[in-house]
């Protein structure tokens, strides 16, 4: 049975299960140690949740195609594969959550951040930092701070079962070990350090308005990078009001650097990004650009190119085209 992904603020059980599952993965050894991933320092155990931090960092440092510039496009960001690659990553986390929760029907919840970013007069909340998501109770994510001291991911150095950050990046984007510490968040910083507001529902609506911008009916357009017109780049946030990028910047702290999956809000944020993409495909068809006629400098971003995912070396690799229809695996309770 396909999982149904719920709104994290409307499904208390899903939110509690997500927090419990993340904490279980955070303390589940993988049998591999940090040295196997080229992380300097004494070899220490790597836990399942932290694999997703490593995966994100490696993918965004991987130039696609090989020999290119990861700053132009990489295996996870700044180009067409942004949405397919994160879809695959989320599905892997969801599968591991289903396993440790013993619930094959568990659906990864999404955070509809645009509702929290919308002012009360427009149907939203007065203060996004006071959203129910950030409750300090065990069924909340805790608020901001360094470390975050409340909620299900609070840090307590004396409690080895509490949530902790073990692997991060340095300023060059390289993986590094850190002394185990708590999460850091710093909401709503001004530019250039962050974003003073979350995206609003109107910003999301505008991303579907093909009358105002006909390019939004296309998934992506040349030159297929951060300057492109089209839906992918609007949702990734390098054009328009910011959307995906803006959420990372608003949360701040551990959501800012390449190791942003350290904050469990990363996955419920990206689940909402995936939901917005799914909505776009309902309106515009399960289309993707570029196709396989695109030039070699787009190798790795074309519709049938293998993604940087564990199935890439297999006979049937994950590709952008292969993940456009996921209805056999999951669906969303509501599309915007």
């Amino acid at each position: 049975m396909a999982a149904i992904r719920p709104d994290i603020l409307r499904d208390d059980q899903a939110r509690a299960d997500y927090i419990r599952g993340v904490r279980l993965l955070k303390h589940e050894p993988t049998t591999l140690t940090t040295d196997r991933f080229g992380i300097s320092g004494r070899a220490r155990p790597v836990y399942t949740y932290d694999l997703f931090v490593i995966w994100h960092v490696l993918a965004m440092n991987t130039a696609v195609p090989p020999g290119g510039d990861a700053g132009t496009r990489n295996a996870a960001h700044r180009g067409p594969v942004f949405l397919p690659w994160h879809r695959v990553m989320l599905r892997w986390l969801e599968a591991h959550l289903q396993r440790v929760l013993g619930d094959p029907d568990f659906g990864l919840p999404y955070w509809d951040w645009a509702l929290d970013g919308t002012p009360p007069a427009l149907g939203g909340v007065a203060n996004p930092a006071a959203s129910a998501l950030w409750r300090d109770t065990p069924d909340g994510f805790g608020g901001q701070g360094s470390p975050v001291r409340g909620g299900g991911f609070a840090f307590d150095r004396a409690d080895p079962t509490s949530f902790r950050v073990r692997i991060a990046t340095d300023s060059s984007g390289a993986l590094r070990q850190v002394t185990e510490r708590g999460l850091a968040r710093k909401f709503g910083q001004n530019a250039p350090f962050g974003s003073p507001r979350l995206p609003r529902t109107g910003d999301v609506r505008t991303a579907y308005n093909t009358r105002a911008d006909p390019s939004l009916a296309d998934y992506d357009r040349p030159p297929f990078d951060v300057s492109s017109r089209g839906f992918r780049n609007r949702l990734e946030g390098f054009t328009g009001p910011g959307l995906h990028n803006q959420v990372h910047l608003w949360v701040g702290g551990d959501m800012a650097p390449a190791s942003s999956p350290n904050d469990p809000v990363f996955f419920v944020h990206h689940c909402n990004v995936d939901r917005l993409w799914e909505r776009w495909m309902h309106r515009n068809g399960r289309q993707y650009q570029p196709d396989m006629t695109a030039p070699p400098n787009l190798l790795g971003h074309r519709i049938d190119d293998p993604l940087v995912s564990p199935f890439a070396p297999a006979s049937k690799p994950d590709t952008p085209g292969g993940v456009l229809d996921v209805s056999a695996l999951y669906s969303y309770d509501v599309l915007p």
Partner: peptide
């Protein structure tokens, strides 16, 4: 140089939930 025990991020408490978020 990234040795153990040298976490490059966020070592100060920047206030609780609901603040403006300004540094």
């Amino acid at each position: 140089d990234g040795h153990d025990g040298h976490d490059g991020q966020h070592t100060n408490d920047h206030g609780g939930a609901g603040s403006s978020g300004h540094s």
